[in-house]
Simulated assay, not measured.
Amino acid sequence: MTPNSRACWVLSWCLPLIWIFGFTPIAQAYTPLSDDSLRSLPRPGNDFDIHKGTLLAPILRPRVPGSPGSRAVLEHFVKFFETTLPNWNIEFQNSTSKTPVTGNKEIPFVNLIASRDPPNVQPGNVGRLTVVAHYDSKFKPDGFIGATDSAAPCAIILHAIRSIDAALTKKWEVLKEDPAYELGLYDYQGIQIFLLDGEEAFGQWSETDSLYGARSLAEHLERTPHPALSTYKNPLEAIRLFVLLDLLGAKDPTVPSHFKTTHWAYQHMAVLESRLRKLGLFKSAKQPQKNGSKKKPQPVKPWFPDRLKHADDVFSPFGIEDDHVPFMKRGVDILHIIPSPFPDVWHRIEDDAEHLHPDTVEDWGTLITAFVAEWLDLEECLETDTLPSSRKGERSKTEL
């Protein structure tokens, strides 16, 4: 059967259903990753090494908006995409603002938006998983690095999208052969990342002295219309889930569930954490024993303790103020991955490379990769051929 005849056959089969039910897109499945797929997720190697790591080390420097350090980190991001993920689209959203400590000087803020959408689909018809971190560092104290806040989250995101890119390519190559895809009947899902500038206050945190980049970008996306008859009227509406990472990299984080509307996504993240631990794939969960010690290792507390919290339980109406706020005010669903309490080094000069916990940073990279792969339904496209045969075919039941 030729492609044209195949498309005609599917059209003849679909038209009665379309006439009855309307032009409802085919919802794409959310398939939990098998144990084999979790084991096959790429590990970062030395990418998170604080001295020579290709992803993290270049970010571990002061990067106040408008400074040479900020420009150097932005160049690092651009080079990463140009050399590693050339199929991704990169754009910048710029703004300027005065701040309470810089007088009449206009400070530039540069947001980087990188996206990858299904092939041959108009942007207005693509919903996007959006993964976000800020890359700027505080104005004071002088020399502040902000390793958890948020150099490590930026590197974790770069690792995750690089890890799923080949599987995403494979999935879309297969989908292009599906006549339903050709006919525009799919619920098209892409992915984008925001690396935001100007999250930190220059003086004292307020509505006007904070979230400079996020406020500008949210307004810009809302005011940028998609063509008439698009599925989503603007890029803001196309954000299906806004996953914000912040203050990650310290040992033993505790991440609460902030919002009722995304508690289901929080639970998926919690299930993945539990499964990765059970499979022995979390480095930070392995506690070294002292020679001759007969004491049993203490159980590690889960990072997502609200997993069993019911959706009808009381949730904070605001959560923690962060880059998600301008988007949440415009109706975007938010999954905020931020520890509470904050790391001990928060906003202190000690929030530097040496105070990161390397195994925890790597585990976050694995967990976020797994979550993104499940959201994009990549189970059948992840490469597992390199696993030992004795470990193939294992699948876990994932129950919330």
Rank of each mutant, 00 (worst) to 15 (best):
N4W: 08
R6S: 14
C8A: 14
W9L: 15
L11C: 06
C14W: 14
L15F: 08
G22E: 06
P25Q: 07
S34E: 10
D35A: 15
D36A: 15
S40N: 09
F48C: 11
G53E: 12
I59Y: 07
L60H: 08
L60M: 09
P62S: 05
P65S: 15
A72K: 13
E75R: 12
H76R: 04
V78L: 13
K79W: 02
T83H: 06
W88A: 01
W88H: 02
W88Q: 02
I90D: 00
I90G: 00
E91A: 07
S95D: 10
K98L: 05
K98E: 14
K98Q: 14
T99R: 03
V101K: 06
G103D: 01
G103R: 00
K105P: 03
F109S: 10
R116D: 03
P118Y: 02
Q122Y: 06
V126D: 05
V132Q: 02
V132I: 13
S137R: 02
K138C: 04
K140V: 10
A147Q: 06
A147G: 09
T148Y: 07
A151Y: 07
A151R: 05
H159F: 13
R162E: 15
A167Y: 12
W172M: 09
V174P: 00
P179A: 10
Y181M: 04
L183M: 15
G184M: 07
G184E: 07
L185P: 03
D187G: 03
E200L: 08
G203A: 14
L211W: 06
L217F: 08
L217W: 06
H220K: 13
R223A: 13
P225H: 03
H226T: 04
Y232L: 07
K233D: 13
L236D: 10
L244N: 09
L244D: 02
D246W: 01
P253N: 02
T254Q: 10
P256R: 00
H263F: 01
Q267D: 01
H268S: 09
S274N: 09
R277A: 14
L281G: 09
F282S: 14
K283S: 13
K283A: 14
K286Y: 06
G292M: 08
K294N: 13
K295E: 15
Q298F: 03
P305M: 11
P317W: 01
P317F: 03
I320A: 08
D323S: 04
M328A: 09
K329S: 07
V332M: 00
L335M: 08
I338S: 02
P339I: 03
S340T: 08
V345L: 00
W346G: 04
I349S: 14
I349Q: 11
D351A: 04
A353P: 11
L356V: 11
P358S: 08
P358T: 06
E362N: 10
G365S: 11
T366C: 07
I368M: 15
T369E: 13
A373Y: 10
D377S: 15
C381K: 02
L382D: 09
E383Q: 13
T384G: 06
D385E: 12
P388C: 07
S390D: 10
S390I: 11
K392P: 02
E394W: 05
S396K: 00
T398V: 02
